[in-house]
Design a protein around this nucleic acid. Structure first.
Lengths: 242, 242
DNA sequence: TAGTGGTCTAGACCACATA
DNA sequence: ATGTGGTCTAGACCACTAG
């Protein structure tokens, strides 16, 4: 009679979903405050404690940010503090460095079978492919290809990439209203091919860290696929397990 | 007048610390149930809701495991379910594979400056160094060196390693009462040296994923340092950001 | 001083596991 | 039927921010 799904959805989970729907629909923009807990409680006809539990869950997922005495805010990639949530590359010595991004290419293409599967598209659907190089302190360290659904990122161009200051996720947020919430990555060690070696100023065959990423927005909708190749002699990929 | 530390510690945080101290002191063993929320509330002279919040925090850190209708249990590395919390290597196709561990070496040594720093020891303190190979489905895939404080793991031997079934963290838990809670890792791509290449049946210079790990027990005490080299043609290192 | 999130309590009731 | 964790509520008070 009963499947694997829960037999009922707790009230605070329903409230959480309502808040996410509001965020997804643009009711509250990144960086802005959402209504107070009591106001949301009144709106949804539940107690403030139930709203609190829903907001707690979203804060734990870094979707919302609580600030005592001020309010609860929609997380944004435009803050320095959030900058390193999706950037795990760290210099061997010293603090997380600044990086400069240079996009060498931004073209239209058709989704490969693989890209279509990962981005939940149909093969042949329009995509935008960006190739860029990340440099830390002037030294090129990462070459990556980013694949995006053209329908979602209509109008994205090399000029826009060049004009934007800040992380590319901030650009997605500011220009297209797309919030990146989480990502899955697959890491491998590979040998640099000739083109990549040249771009990074390394010998062909140098071991590089291959990072394949699928990033998701609200509701676990995949909206970005990227494949990066990183030199890891001057930097390492930090990770925390637990 | 006031430093960066909080001006006070909420009651539920104090309760949380008391529970951790109990776990650290062995009051409740891995796999066992801790007392019910009401019993803990009575013992600590607080309300059940306050205990709940403390337990919630520990469950979020995977230190405790809640089971509705049954009780709250101390997490253990002896369960298949917890097996993959610290094992990120995944076969390209199919489900997470079984792996076999073969320790080729288990010797006493003196802590290097580096190991001493990472494990919070004094240089020259006694350590145990284990070298082992992990094989997935019969194919060697990982070579790693594990460094442990000798004082904490007194009596660890090649024989014990060979005799133990299950993960090495389960061995730490079962034989030495050491619970691994979390770990920090540094990942790099490196070229296989001659010895590692031979051990893995690969050509010298093959790109390998280098994984340096410091693992911590209760109270963020570092008790294990390991350095692994993994082939990543048949497997990848999975990671989730967000 | 007012408004927000943060803590703490107490009690009622629901869902689940076990006997 | 009983005991456990899980949800929901209501109210009081604390800590922080801003005007």
């Amino acid at each position: 009679m009963r499947g694997a799904a829960p037999t009922y959805l707790p009230l605070y989970r329903q409230i959480k979903d309502l808040i996410v729907r509001g965020l997804d629909g643009g009711a509250w923009k990144p960086g802005q405050a959402i209504p107070s807990e009591f106001e949301l409680a009144e709106r949804f006809r539940v107690s403030q404690g139930t709203v609190r539990k829903a907001v707690d869950a979203l804060a734990a997922e870094n979707v919302l940010v609580r600030r005592q005495g001020k309010g609860t805010y929609v997380a944004t990639h435009g803050e320095a503090r959030q900058q390193f949530r999706f950037l795990r590359l760290t210099p061997n010595e010293g603090a997380p460095a600044q990086y400069e991004s240079r996009a060498s290419e931004c073209r239209r293409a058709r989704a490969s079978v693989e890209a279509a599967r990962l981005l939940d598209l149909k093969p042949g659907d329009g995509v935008i492919v960006i190739r860029r190089v990340l440099a830390f302190g002037g030294t090129p360290a990462v070459v990556e290809d980013i694949t995006l659904p053209a329908a979602t990122f209509k109008g994205l161009s090399a000029a826009k990439l060049a004009a934007h200051r800040g992380s590319i996720y901030h650009l997605y947020e500011a220009e297209f209203g797309i919030q990146m919430i989480r990502a899955d990555e697959k890491l491998r060690a590979v040998a640099a091919d000739a083109a990549t070696a040249a771009a990074l100023g390394l010998a062909r065959g140098t071991p590089l860290l291959s990072v394949e990423r699928v990033a998701f927005t609200y509701g676990d909708r995949p909206v970005e696929y990227r494949h990066g190749l990183c030199r890891t002699d001057t930097h390492y990929y930090r990770n925390r397990l637990g």
